[in-house]
Design a protein around this nucleic acid. Structure first.
Lengths: 188, 188
DNA sequence: AATTTAATTAGATGTTTATCTAAATAAATT
DNA sequence: AATTTATTTAGATAAACATCTAATTAAATT
């Protein structure tokens, strides 16, 4: 989950909290002092500090009835260093369903009976559709043009276009003479 | 000003925008694709992308009626590198009035005529008051205890406490015998 | 030329958030 | 023990924001 990351960025996504971090980078401060320096009431400072603390950026120690806050420089540097690492980047997309777009395109072009309502003209969408229809063919098997058309006709009447695009996008191979068709790899 | 920094952090302070950055780190995407992947409507994606663009994190190129967005990796790395540098830290506190706390303490303990309403018991506040009253003395001049008391009496009746604390905090020097008092440096 | 498609802008809505005052808590000074 | 002082919590309010639908713009396909 990237919840922690969001908390981190949210904590710093405020002008007054950034000022606090800048001040605490110099020395420790009490709530009262920060309130005076930023011209805010103490409860507001408390609120901001709790957000910074939630992100692990600051911590407090009690001194009498003062709460003295300090910047967690170590934590800050550690976090900052890995912020835009590949690991971090990948973690943000962990719970993204990468097939959602393909499913949507397929749904948009599919009729209830599974046939295609049309053949998309946009490259990206056409690819999605082609990857779908190519699943009808078994890798390694040699098909005649007639057999190919028969299979494609289950999706759309314009079998010629589908067949041509399949070959054009490299999803289906064709013997130079045009007699034999086959696919090479197991589709995802 | 730290306005740019705030814009940067605000841009990343949202789970969906972080996901978008993560996706765009892999390859370019159109608005439509991002909308499908994140299960949001295209206008929402447009809104998010405009925030990311405002922060300089992404840019768009037109391809037909598509807007293909890409991550500005160079800008991202440059910004990320300097995020918590000393320069950046200091810049956030540029427009903070560092004397505001001292002024507040002084105001809290000052009567309309300039005398003190009391002597604070808190270290930090006492220091502020002492730094204020010590301005009555000229560096280099030798004062008798009587002269010191006279000057301090203009602030508060308890001259003994003020005198003792001034010496205790090192703001005023005293000859071992207790006869001569002076200050060494020009106070701020 | 008419239609379709993708993106953006405008406007509406519900949620989050920054800030304040007032009340509650807790520790120190008198 | 009573009072003062600093912080935090609770509750209120206004501004900011994420999201949606509807309308507009602009480009491609038919």
């Amino acid at each position: 989950m990237n919840a922690e990351l969001v908390i981190f960025f949210k904590a710093l996504a405020d002008a007054n909290r950034l000022k606090m971090v800048g001040l605490l980078a110099q020395r420790d401060y009490s709530v009262e002092e920060l309130a005076a320096l930023l011209n805010l009431r103490p409860p507001t400072i408390s609120h901001h500090l709790s957000k910074l603390a939630e992100a692990g950026l600051v911590s407090a120690r009690a001194e009498g009835y003062y709460s003295i806050y300090q910047l967690n420089k170590a934590a800050l540097e550690t976090t900052a260093r890995g912020l835009f690492s590949n690991e971090q980047m990948n973690s943000t997309t962990e719970d993204v369903d990468l097939d959602a777009y393909d499913r949507k395109v397929l749904a948009d072009f599919s009729l209830p009976d599974g046939r295609l309502s049309g053949i998309p003209s946009q490259r990206r969408k056409l690819e999605v559709i082609l990857h779908h229809v190519v699943k009808s063919f078994k890798p390694g098997v040699i098909y005649s043009e007639k057999q190919v058309n028969q299979a494609l006709a289950r999706f759309h009447a314009d079998t010629a276009t589908l067949r041509r695009e399949l070959v054009g996008y490299g999803l289906m191979k064709r013997e130079t003479g045009g007699r034999a068709y086959w696919i090479e790899r197991v589709p995802g």
